[in-house]
């Protein structure tokens, strides 16, 4: 068994988990609940084992590095982060419908990872830093929270669009708008803290490798743009009382910016970070 096989299993398990949660939501198949949670927990464990095994394999090859340094590895870690953020929310809010709007992101991340080359390649000197590990972990926990927040934003809009008409039982099974709004807000706060930590750890790393903590390269700039968007969202809510649909849309818009920072920049723009991308 090697790590790519484990991560292949992970892909299917997340996919199954996403399908189960969607089934719970669409068919109100409450009986599937425990099964869905178990599958998710299983997928998460296999995902963890896959990352661990890949780490071990890199040591076996004499390269030895934390598997967080190319697009494949970061997507795998992204899926891992989404799963842990979601599992935490499921335990906290005791509501499995949230899974229908969260776990598809984890499945999607793993499917995208599946399109990448999983070969373990040696690290160029610039990437040999413990700050890289701190940077990737903090960024991706933030990204995962924003992914879930955008899922909750979609959920809010779905629920809100239908309540004025005769709300079917499907829509009624969603948490009420106020609760969703609160979840969106809390998830964004959580994500914002980690994104800030991610940008900061990246700056510290850049400074220890190149002597400049900030050089306005496209990836850095886009992470700052994303940060500005969420900062504006927080202020709109906190001091101008925005909520509901507007924040739901901002959660979705913010995540588009996250995805552009993460994915788009590597393919559409050039800069220091592009070596991490392909």
């Amino acid at each position: 068994m090697n790590s790519s096989q484990l991560l292949g299993i992970t892909t299917f398990a997340y996919l199954l988990s996403a399908i189960l949660y969607i089934a719970i939501f669409v068919f109100r198949a409450k009986k599937l609940g425990l099964f869905a949670t178990l599958i998710t927990a299983f997928a998460f464990l296999i995902n963890t084992a896959g990352i661990g095994l890949r780490w071990y394999e890199s040591h076996q090859m004499g390269i030895g590095y934390a598997p967080l340094s190319n697009m494949y590895e970061s997507l795998v870690f992204f899926a891992w982060s989404i799963a842990i953020v979601y599992l935490f929310m499921e335990i906290r809010y005791k509501n499995r419908v949230l899974g229908a709007f969260s776990m598809p992101f984890a499945a999607l991340a793993m499917i995208l990872a599946g399109l990448k080359n999983p070969d373990i390649k040696p690290l160029i000197p610039a990437l040999q830093s413990n700050w890289l590990i701190a940077h990737v972990i903090t960024c991706f926990i933030g990204y995962a929270a924003f992914a879930v927040a955008s899922g909750m934003g979609v959920m809010y809009l779905v629920k809100d669009r239908r309540t004025d008409k005769t709300a079917g039982p499907l829509i009624a099974s969603l948490p009420d708008l106020k609760a969703i709004d609160d979840i969106i807000h809390k998830t964004i706060l959580f994500g914002f803290l980690w994104l800030s930590a991610g940008i900061i750890s990246g700056a510290v790393w850049a400074n220890s490798a190149w002597g400049t903590y900030w050089s306005w390269d496209p990836k850095e700039t886009w992470s700052l743009i994303t940060w500005f968007i969420y900062a504006a969202t927080l202020h709109a809510r906190f001091t101008r009382g925005w909520g509901g649909r507007r924040i739901a849309w901002l959660a979705i818009g913010g995540f588009v910016s996250v995805m552009f920072t993460y994915y788009g920049v590597n393919y559409l723009l050039s800069g220091l970070h592009s070596y991490g991308g392909r």
Partner: peptide, 16 residues
């Protein structure tokens, strides 16, 4: 503040 955050975000795109 909202205005300047959004203007900073949008104009920063130019340099990328």
């Amino acid at each position: 503040a909202l205005f300047s955050l959004l203007i900073l975000a949008t104009t920063s795109i130019i340099g990328t």
